[in-house]
Design a protein around this nucleic acid. Structure first.
Lengths: 355, 355
DNA sequence: ACGCATTCCGTAAACGTTTACGATCCTATG
DNA sequence: CATAGGATCGTAAACGTTTACGGAATGCGT
């Protein structure tokens, strides 16, 4: 309260310096915690900045030091993503921020419009130099974005693994573990004909999921039947379609593993139309546990994880690859497979062989 | 393909100018579509920029002209928001972008960490001058953020109305229409004792929803009973709690209106524990239609709207209040109430008076 | 041939910060 | 007392861009 209530509009560090009768350089050093400044004047500067509501103009700062203190999380807001992710990204964002906040890093989300090519969008964002580092999500099996970021020498980490050359940092859910666990459980319940749904194998997830499924079957000495792999969209309609195709098979499967819990609703509906009751006549295991999965009757057996904590891990992975922070987060783990835990429901408990 | 494949790293507009043997000022004018430049040289510049992959450094540009061409959408990623919104924000983002893209405006999302005060977070973002305009969401009944933005003279619009002084631009769902329609429908089905759930009346929505409910009852000559207003969290647990409180009442309601479809699952469970079947023994109307609401059995009667198109409207409202665009979007509509449409389910169809 | 308007382009000054460098003062040590 | 060295601060030069201003060249009418 040095000089009353109303202040002239704060124009910049220059005004602040004049007001304090200190040189502009010293003010900057004081604010940024540089060593060459008397502790007492630092206090004065901080107090005045607080009082006058001064905050450094980001553009000037970034221009000078080539850094923005902002980390970007790129997401694709395609219709399909929006319907499936069930706030996955908002949750992971919380985890990311809890780490970034410790280093005065702000997170912004960069939603790629669904009519723009993600690669071009990212190129624009990178060139604009508005973020210091990037997290990209929904990675493709071969994703040019990795090369772009590597070439631009901008630190990054991926939410979702990729096959790109070189070992780039990423974190991903343990789809392999999920499908293994699901198959184990179903086999233990007596199933031998187990179907699986997955997105197209272009999508990395589609590839991994089916590959894990194949290996799990092999472990149990069960032959892999291509007809039991249904490629479908990860939506309610996709689930309906999966059921439809399964019902058409000569020899029906007795169990099915779904890649997205949302598909279960469509599948439930379709099989019930055919007089088949999920959990009694056909076993269903879904992935992943989400608030909406609780709406199902019978409750879906699925897999739970803390998406928030996944964000925490991912943030540390990213920071470990940023020169300015790599001394704090040693580069031990560059890739990370995030575990999930089985949540038994009733969609696979009361198994009776169909027909 | 003027001079082979590899290019030296593009450092800035200066290099581009040297490469073209043109002055730096002309290059800038050419890129920005200024009139004082020969059409042919403009073509050359644009071609070279494309070829060398030059994109203007955002910091330098913003510093000079005080504008960033970026619009921010502030959201709060609190646990409750994340669980309830069902990707509401991602969807509205799509609508916003479809408008912004026409003006080369980029949208970024600013997720306020849940352990930070939204007001302080916004203040930081505003002071950093990283966005030209802002959209704020989840507005409180009295929300200091409006004053902050007005004082900072930064254009903004709100997703959700507010009571703040002055007529600030906003768009909001037609909660009044929803509750009116719900009451009308229930009354037409013979109900007189209609309960309602709503969040605390500090939240603007909680106030509006109950107020509309009161007026709707009045229109039908039904007395307003405070005991039938249940304040609960907008979650599954909240729905369970609502049912719990309703079951405890001396004279039970025969119908209940829920503010969030997610609450229906908890309510369903609780009333079924008591041997009461939703849709037969008690009528349930929910708000809003969401993918997950389809999981309910019986299907929930609820309200549908195009959140994407709401985003479009909101974007136009915002642009109309930005000096640079107000000639394109005349300031006719500054506030907008966005309609919803009833989606009849079966949760209120087979009404039989309880007891 | 002259004046004038128009078209195009180059020059240089800003925008707000950070930081290398050097200047000043003070203290301790010989 | 002389000097070294540390503590503290001021000065000025960058960072990459846009834009006001003025200059050169051209066209046109007289």
């Amino acid at each position: 309260m040095a000089h009353g209530g109303k202040h002239p509009p704060m124009k910049g560090i220059r005004q602040l310096a004049e007001h304090l009768d200190i040189s502009i350089g010293t003010v900057s050093r004081a604010l940024n915690g540089k060593p060459d400044v008397n502790e007492e004047t630092r206090k004065r500067v901080l107090a005045a900045a607080e009082q006058l509501g001064y905050v450094a103009n980001q553009s000037g700062r970034s221009l000078r030091q080539g850094t923005t203190n902002v980390i970007g999380l790129m997401i694709q807001s395609s219709k399909e993503t929006v319907e499936n992710s069930d706030n996955f990204f908002l949750t992971v964002t919380g985890g990311l921020q809890s780490v970034f906040a410790r280093h005065n890093l702000d997170l912004i989300m960069l939603p790629c419009p669904n009519d723009e090519d993600p690669y071009e969008y990212l190129k624009r964002m990178v060139a604009r130099r508005v973020v210091d580092a990037l997290i990209i999500s929904e990675t493709q099996r071969i994703d040019k974005r990795f090369d772009l970021l590597a070439k631009a020498k901008i630190p990054f980490a991926a939410l979702g693994r990729s096959l790109s050359i070189g070992q780039h940092p990423w974190a991903d859910l343990d789809f392999d573990g999920v499908v293994n666990c699901a198959v184990d459980r179903l086999v233990a319940l007596g199933h031998r004909r187990i179907a699986i749904s997955a997105p197209s194998s272009d999508i990395n997830l589609g590839f991994i999921f089916v590959e894990g499924y194949r290996r799990a079957l092999e472990r149990h000495g069960i032959d892999f039947e291509p007809a039991l792999v249904i490629r479908a969209k990860s939506s309610e309609q996709g689930g309906y379609q999966v059921a439809d195709e399964l019902l058409r098979l000569e020899e029906r499967p007795t169990a099915v593993i779904l890649i997205y819990e949302l598909m279960a609703i469509g599948l439930y509906r379709r099989v019930m139309e055919a007089g088949i009751i999920p959990g009694r006549d056909i076993a269903v295991v879904g992935f992943r546990e989400a608030p909406r999965a609780k709406f199902l009757q019978p409750p879906l057996t699925c897999f739970r994880t803390s998406v928030h904590d996944l964000g925490v891990e991912l943030a540390e992975i990213l920071l470990s690859s940023m020169p300015a922070y790599s001394h704090i987060y040693p580069k031990t783990k560059r890739q990370m497979i995030w575990p999930l835990q089985l949540v038994p429901g009733e969609s696979d408990s009361f198994y009776l062989k169909v027909e």
